[in-house]
Each structure stands twice: as structure tokens, then as C-alpha cells.
């Protein structure tokens, strides 16, 4: 989506519709998102060690490099300045397991940008969230390293190296909510600390870079769908708060599903989108073969976005229904 801003210092940009109006230009928004991601980077380093910075650097480096390379081959204008490749790289790194191999990180970054974004025509044309495409590829390519979770440095109690979600799914061990909130549990780099994720995410909502509807509808959806099962049998199914604070839900809701390009354009569509993600997520977590389903549920609903947009388009003023 290209943005036409009211800022007079900008020259007139022409782009195919749909256009999104926002207080911020694409460039400014990207910098604000970068700032919002910073707390997650810090929590990753605090809980899992300095090596994680290397993963982040490699991921960002290869994302930017791939974008530049593709643009050069296709003889298009280099668009690194918009910062979107940097954000994809950061987000990809933050949803990888701690101490992940650097060469595999690089492959994931290349796939994210190459197949997730540039093959569709670059920023604004991609159907799926690029960082999640990269992670989905890595998950399929290297399933064992992708599910090997290192212990955080300051683990309060040793709940083995399982993530809270796999612990409850396979071993029926639940994790204290307070640990989930702080982040000293097993999990991907950036997703373990609910505080860090919320800090950045709420900042983005408050300043208006991301729309509040998708995260809110996802949260409500998980509370409703997860709550139904919990009420049916609290012994088997975890309570909805656990669904929200465990795993990648918050990162997904605040940073992945809210991606401008791959989420619906209109208010009603955003509600449908968020609720759809929540439903698929709860089904995968409770009944699927995998402990976590945030990535697949968002990718799945990404595919429906064009359809949702089509049916939720507001009536044009003056036109008959």
C-alpha cells in the first residue's frame, strides 16, 4: 500500500489503489515500528544472552541484502530507505528459537524477502506476512532445530527446555502466569516477555501506526473460543489468559497480524480477520499436532484478506447498494 500524505514537502506520489490514509508517512511509520520492536530485542538479549544479537544482525543484514539484490536484478529503484526490510528482518529474528544457527537464519531471511515479498512485486503487493513466510519455510526445512528451545538465563524454576505451550500440550504441565508475563520461560527470542511485547505494541496503537481493531478482535476471539473449551473442561484445556500470554500470541496480534499490507483495509474486515485468526489458533493449539499455531493461523487468514476486503468494502457515498 502506498501512502499519499498531506505533507506539502512531499512531491505527488502516484500509486495504484487502495490508498491508506494515515497520520504518518510510510517512512516515519517504519521508524516508529523499529522503536516499538526495541523492547523485544532487549528482552531477547536479557533472557537468552548476547548471541541473540548476532541472529538479529544476520537476519536484518540478509533481508536488506536480498531486497537490494532483487531490486538490482529487476532493475528497480532501491527501496531500502523505507525500512520495511529491516523490520521484516527484526521480526523474523524475534520469532526464531534462541541460539538458532546463523546460516539457517540467513536462509530464512532470504526466503522472507525473496519469496515472501519481492516475488509478488515488493512492498505493498505481498499476500503473506514476509517474516512469517520465512519462519514457515524454516519450520518445514529444519523442524528439529526450530523446535529446540534453550532455557532462559534467569529461569526461576527448571521446567525443562519445553515452551509453556508444548509443556501443557504434551506433558500437561502448566506455567505460572507471572513467569509468562516477565518472560523467563522457553520460547522464541522476542515472544517470551509479555511486558516487552505489550510495551511496544501499545505504543504503536496509541500513536496510531497500527489499528487497534485486529489485536482487540484477536484477543476477544481467543478469550471467547478458548474460554468455551476451558469452561467445558478446565482440567484438559488451558484457560484463555494462558492462551494470550503463552507463545507468540502477543507478537502475532500486535506486530504480525497488524501488518499494513497483509491485513484488511476496512474496520469490519479487521474484526472478521482477527476473529478468524483466533478461531484457527485455538483449534491448532487445542487439537492440532503442533503446540503453537500463531504463525499458521495468521498466514491462513492472510490468504483471505483480498476476499474480506471485497465483501467489507464500505458503500460508496451516493451509490445504490
Amino acid at each position: 500500500m502506498n501512502t499519499i500524505t498531506a505533507n506539502p514537502s512531499y512531491k505527488l506520489e502516484l500509486a495504484a489503489s487502495p490508498h491508506v490514509h494515515s497520520r504518518w508517512s510510510t517512512k516515519q511509520a517504519m521508524w516508529l515500528v523499529l522503536a516499538a520492536i526495541l523492547p523485544m530485542v532487549i528482552s531477547a538479549v536479557v533472557f537468552f544472552g548476547l548471541y541473540q544479537l548476532l541472529i538479529i544482525i544476520v537476519s536484518v543484514g540478509f533481508c536488506v541484502g536480498t531486497e537490494a539484490a532483487v531490486k538490482a536484478v529487476r532493475k528497480r529503484k532501491i527501496s531500502i530507505g523505507d525500512g520495511s526490510a529491516v523490520i521484516t528482518g527484526l521480526l523474523l529474528a524475534l520469532i526464531l528459537p534462541p541460539n538458532f544457527s546463523l546460516s539457517s537464519t540467513a536462509i530464512g531471511a532470504i526466503v522472507s524477502i525473496g519469496i515472501g515479498k519481492e516475488i509478488f512485486g515488493g512492498l505493498g503487493y505481498n499476500i503473506f506476512n514476509p517474516a512469517l513466510v520465512g519462519r514457515a519455510f524454516l519450520q518445514a526445512a529444519f523442524p528439529v532445530p526450530m523446535t529446540t528451545w534453550s532455557q532462559p538465563n534467569y529461569a526461576v524454576d527448571s521446567i525443562s527446555s519445553a515452551t509453556p505451550l508444548s509443556a501443557i500440550k504434551f506433558d500437561k504441565v502448566s506455567t505460572e502466569l507471572s513467569n509468562l508475563f516477565l518472560g523467563n520461560v522457553g520460547g522464541s527470542l522476542g515472544e517470551t516477555s509479555a511486558i516487552a511485547v505489550l510495551l511496544g505494541g501499545i505504543f504503536l496503537i496509541v500513536i496510531g501506526v497500527v489499528n487497534w481493531r485486529v489485536p482487540v478482535s484477536m484477543t476477544l476471539g481467543v478469550i471467547i473460543f478458548g474460554g468455551i473449551f476451558w469452561l467445558l473442561d478446565p482440567a484438559i484445556y488451558p484457560n484463555p489468559l494462558f492462551h494470550i500470554f503463552a507463545g507468540g500470541f502477543l507478537v502475532g496480534a500486535l506486530f504480525m497480524a497488524t501488518d499494513w499490507v497483509t491485513s484488511p483495509l476496512y474496520g469490519k474486515g479487521m474484526w472478521i480477520f482477527g476473529a478468524g485468526i483466533a478461531l484457527v489458533l485455538v483449534l491448532i493449539r487445542l487439537f492440532g499436532g503442533l503446540p503453537e499455531g500463531v504463525m499458521y493461523s495468521i498466514l491462513f487468514m492472510n490468504a483471505f484478506v483480498p476476499l474480506i476486503n471485497r465483501y467489507t468494502k464500505p458503500r460508496i457515498f451516493g451509490k445504490e447498494k
Binding site: 546460516s103 539457517s104 519469496i115 519455510f137 529444519f142 523442524p143
Partner: peptide, 14 residues
Amino acid sequence: EPWLVMILPAGAFL
């Protein structure tokens, strides 16, 4: 490290 995805159906489509 072999990319398992390549010998899965997803690898064929890709």
C-alpha cells in the same frame, strides 16, 4: 543441513 521442506510436498510446489 538438508532442507527437509524440499522432500515434502511443499518443496515440490515451491
